[in-house]
Nucleic acid binder design. Structure first.
Lengths: 194, 194, 194, 194
DNA sequence: AATGAATGAGAATTCATTCAT
DNA sequence: CATGAATGAATTCTCATTCAT
């Protein structure tokens, strides 16, 4: 299968770099091929078209991203700790890979509706992890039982995503991880006084 | 000034419709001109280029959007009510204008970095309204005093934006306004049991 | 008749300035109108189209140019002196009007074949003056009698034109008139030793 | 290197034909591509843009033109014979290629200042050949020693150019080469009686 | 006579994808 | 498997000219 051949990953890594450096619209297939050290035509032996490179990039990177988070969460005792770990891992992984952060937060969003639907599919396992975490919190009586699951998921994901995007747009100048604890508190306790 | 001439608004309305119906990338200037009932060249008497149509569209629509919210909030007594009103008005205005919702949540995000920076500028007054509301809540001792202002702002905006985007991507099938109350509770009280 | 109305000349003067300053292709009708202090539409009350402005400009300016030369020559005694005067006047008039020199030597040549044919027509009286001068020289036995009239005319005009064009392309940095005497000698005596 | 690939010359030949037949402004890239039997995009594998086609055309054709003249001159004994050969070769080459004559004398002059400066650069070696010839004539005591080199060069080139242009504008109806001898006499002996 | 808002035709260039070698 | 030369569809913007006022 193509996915395990070295050139597959080679092309994906090249795509991340090229997109991070040049932006989505200036990232021609020929530029990615050059950076990957292959001929233009070779790209099409591993990917059906340009969109497939981007979807595969997202699958590959998000797969690892989600696995890392799922693994780390697994070890934690309760929903609150799990949420903290999820936030921390979400931030840490993007803070550790600046190119990837630019690509996922800014560049890939310039894709058309079709591609964005496929990207959403890739995100589903992550959203499932969040859902699971919320349900666990409810069972543990840490979270309120009347929580609207999709809404809470959207709040959590929307908050994290917006925070990371702001950080990327500010050129990643401050330390994203410093914010994990406060974000955790905000999500768990909201804005209210105790 | 061009902005007050009828054709300026006429072209913007046409642009919203065309983009909502055809998608960002399939919205040629000639299509917008045709829908607006003017010649292609007339577009360029009112806008410097295609990007300027989109920025102006966003300025025009978001200006009204923000004014409406600011006005409604103004009448409310405390920060909690104001936040509720902000959520409700945010949802209501997009729910009332399906085309606009599609354009702002999906299509305009496909624009390049340059345009997105301009769009962010247009959003600043809205973010200022949110900031103001948070500070008021803190003064009223409704909200915790240790709140990190940018972070809270990002949570609120990120949450609302993600919820609206999900609703648009689900083809606006359910009633967005029904969620306002629950979102308000979530933001104010977080996930915790009382 | 339009030609004697003040706006006719006003527009032509504006055209010379605009073309000299902006170049042929960047000289839109609207720019000429603005410089002339009239509305775009007004141009079309005095000229049938843009080409007509340029032809009229050339007619107007070349008419004066040729009249000046013809008058000056008339006073001279023999063909050699007349040729010298023609050269001197040709150079002087262009050296005295830098804008006109740029327009006639560089910018107007970028026009299409049609316009150039019309411009050639305007030049015919000048070429007739040259022809006349040559014939006079032959009659006076100053010039050889076996001269091929069109060829000599082309040599004289081609030489003067090339010299002026080189001077304009070198940004009119040196004194064109200084060359008149040498050019006269060259044309009369050729390259040979006496 | 692209310049030696067959398609490079193929496209240039097509450009000469298309421009000669349709005129400079009606010579779209797609027309040239069609005549050359390649796709529009292929043009841009060999030329950076449309202007580059024209500059390359001129370089290619003038390069040969000048080489031919330089070679022919080289064999001649004295400056007078060399000048005659230069005139004859100048005329012959343009008379032998009607399309090229139209393109160089009429169409390419409609280009903008930028392109014309580049074209002038291509002409420099030709002007150097002329300069060399004049200096040789002076050394041989055939030509006067007080000749102003740039001025003489401009007279020679201006004369030849004007004669060829007149011939092209008269639709190349008469035999250009017939004039070589008379032009030579004119340049060498001027207008004077012996 | 004068205005100037409106018109709409027209063309260079890019780049994802193919396929003969 | 790999190559890379060739393809060709697709779109913004300019500006000479008109005509209702």
């Amino acid at each position: 299968m193509n996915k395990n051949k070295p050139k597959f990953k080679q092309i994906i890594e090249a795509a991340v770099e090229v997109i991070a450096e040049n932006g989505y619209h200036a990232s021609q297939v020929s530029k990615i091929a050059k950076k990957a050290g292959v001929a233009d035509g070779t790209i099409y032996l591993y990917f059906t078209n340009k969109e497939d490179i981007l979807v595969s990039l997202f699958e590959e990177k998000m797969g690892q991203f989600i696995d890392q988070i799922a693994n780390s969460i697994h070890k934690k005792q309760n929903a609150s700790e799990k949420l903290f770990t999820l936030i921390e891992m979400h931030f840490r992984q993007l803070a550790d890979d600046h190119h990837l952060a630019i690509v996922t937060q800014l560049e890939l969003r310039q894709s058309n509706k079709d591609l964005r639907l496929k990207i959403n599919n890739v995100l589903k396992p992550y959203l499932a992890v969040i859902d699971h975490l919320i349900l666990e919190g409810i069972e543990e009586k840490l979270f309120r039982e009347d929580l609207n699951l999709p809404l809470v998921r959207q709040m959590i994901f929307g908050t994290l995503d917006e925070i990371v995007t702001n950080w990327v747009m500010k050129d990643q100048k401050y330390d994203l991880l410093d914010q994990a604890s406060q974000v955790h508190t905000l999500l768990v306790n909201g804005l209210s006084m105790k």
